[in-house]
Design a binder for these strands. Structure first.
Lengths: 353, 353
DNA sequence: GTGAAAGCGCTAACAT
DNA sequence: ATGTTAGCGCTTTCAC
């Protein structure tokens, strides 16, 4: 193994062109000092003569030299990268496309940047959330934010038990070992349902796959609203396990319209689902909000401009990023972070006045 | 400096709890072999006895041990991380929120994952796109994808000149040293405009900040459509430098409606802008599409469900990620990558039939 | 104030 | 088939 300084020939992997990377030894040679001095100078140490320091800094700057962070991190045992995991549905080969998740990613990116952390965006199979730990075990990231609990509360608990710093966007569940941050799903579901009931709707359908904790909680609210209004729980045929992906949901919505099940209100678990429900209803000659009132969830930017403008439950996207990151930073500081449920609120528009 | 094996006490930075990380030496000790053997075993080398290999792999697996990638990369001089840069507007403190950009991020994430690369998502000031090079110079990433050219074609050229593997989502410009991938903006602008002209519209406004190359190209198409129809170029008061951010654009759209400038068609540079234009028009008593036909850009998922459903130029989001990544991989292999312009197509809906 | 040398966790000659 | 050793690019004692 030869000692090389500059131009180390074709590198073994993934960099075939001869892109020689400048390193500290090069700067040292050019400045006529030792690497140790360069290291000190660049870190702003006062141990090095003020003018040499200045000179070295100038030199490095003018050559666009940046300290190799891989090496630095190895030596310093530090790392400022956080993993953000967006699960995908392996069955449907579904990509990251839900606008709400994408917004959350944006808000996390902002929050991490504000704190000087880098964000490694990673996708994992939603059936194998525990694969996220590989990011941590391999030292790539110092902590992980997972977007959504999916069907694997258990796996998340296991991850947390391994004492990996972990924060999950999702609902607060009993016996939860990990820190979650999420909107108040139960309250959101309750508000949406209560709103429809107040408007005199009698038979309200719920659209969402309750295998997902967030959806489960929303249905809890849906049921609670009925109880609070002195009504019996709605029959099973009104509780429809519709998935989030419009394509997969479509036949189910169609079936709901043609099956003869009577309903005059719908609580959907996303705006996209809501608007597709509207389409299906109208295709079958039923008016919205006349015959059926429809409430969405998320309050996406375009929800106000849909036809009809969507009544929906607003989720605090910006706050989401801030809170997720704040919680993770707490964990990184060795402080226990408690689950946090963020308030949500109804936005009443035309689809369910 | 002491030699430590497990439990190395409170680490100096950013990891305060005593999260001891397992390392190869630990596995070696437990397996009663040397680190070299462990290294070989885990890499699946046939140089090591088949059953020892098996045993070591089992052991590592059962302990959730993953090779420290920082150290491995340093040693191997490899890196499989790609930087994706989403610029933000420092003036307006605008966050990543444009739904189209967010979709692109999703599609890039998918494409990178497919090729086994990690994605480091990073934000930089859109006035200092050259800051992106720091990611590369510091060795964090082996190449960079920047989303949008913004106002700094020049900076992008400089980055490419430093021979950093770089691909930019945006328009193809003259004297371009970097590889760009983008929708056919000129054609998109032309199609949108031609569509309105064919429908008999006479005075068509263009909404977009032409300081951005993509927008500039779209306006080229807008002008060309006029020429092709044998019409003189539209007057300056019809070419409105509206920014992408709805809040910033709003007063400008208002002003357009009240200024007395006559127009019966609008080509907007995003769906969001288009729908806000519709709102402004209606607020001032003008109907869409009756009095004014409005065409958007991007074809976001909800565009079909707006009121009115948006006629718009569809951008190939999925292909965008694929192509951006393909181009970057080419560069990483030392192959010159040519700019690529992806076809776009009109989707005709109610806002401009 | 500066340099020599050790070592962060890993891999790959070079030994045996 | 396995161990010993040098070194990836950096920081930091320890000597001068």
């Amino acid at each position: 193994m030869r000692k090389t300084s500059l131009a180390q020939g074709p590198t073994p992997a993934s960099e075939s062109t001869d892109r020689k990377r400048l390193q500290m030894a090069d700067i040292a040679r050019l400045a006529g000092v030792s690497v140790a001095t360069v290291s000190r100078a660049l870190s702003g140490s006062t141990l090095v003569n003020a003018e040499t320091r200045e000179r070295i800094q100038q030199l490095a700057q003018s050559l666009n030299y940046s300290i190799n962070l891989g090496a630095q991190n190895l030596r310093l045992q530090k790392n400022l990268t956080v993993g953000v995991v967006v699960p995908y549905d392996a069955q449907s080969r579904q990509h990251i496309s839900d606008p709400f998740f994408l917004s959350i990613i944006g808000s996390i990116a902002d929050a991490l940047t504000d704190h000087g952390y880098d964000m490694l965006l990673s996708r994992v199979d939603s059936e194998r959330l525990d694969a996220a730990s590989q990011l941590y075990d391999s030292g790539k990231v110092i902590g992980v934010i997972i977007i959504g609990q999916w069907r694997h509360h258990d796996q998340l608990n296991q991850l947390a038990a391994r004492n990996m710093p972990l924060v999950v966007w999702g609902g607060e569940l009993p016996q939860q070992l990990y820190c979650s941050v999420g909107g108040d799903n139960r309250n959101g579901g309750e508000q949406a349902t209560a709103h429809l009931l107040r408007a005199g709707r009698k038979r309200i359908a719920f659209l969402g796959d309750t295998a997902l904790p967030e959806v489960w909680l929303r249905r809890e609210g849906y049921l609670r609203a009925h109880t609070a209004a002195g009504l019996p729980p709605p029959p099973p045929e009104l509780q429809i396990p519709a998935p989030f992906e419009p394509d997969a949901a479509h036949p189910i919505l169609e079936h709901l319209c043609t099956s003869g099940v009577a309903f005059d209100g719908v609580v959907a678990c996303s705006d996209l689902l809501a608007i597709h429900m509207v389409q299906a209803l109208r295709a079958h000659g039923r008016s919205v909000p006349g015959d059926v009132g429809v409430v969405g969830y998320d309050d996406m930017p375009l929800a106000a401009f849909c036809e009809p403008a969507l009544t929906t439950v607003h989720q605090p996207v910006l706050e989401a990023g801030t809170e997720l990151v704040a919680a993770l930073l707490q964990l990184l500081n060795g402080v226990r972070a408690l689950p946090r449920t963020l308030p949500v609120h109804m936005v009443v528009r035309a689809s369910a006045p």
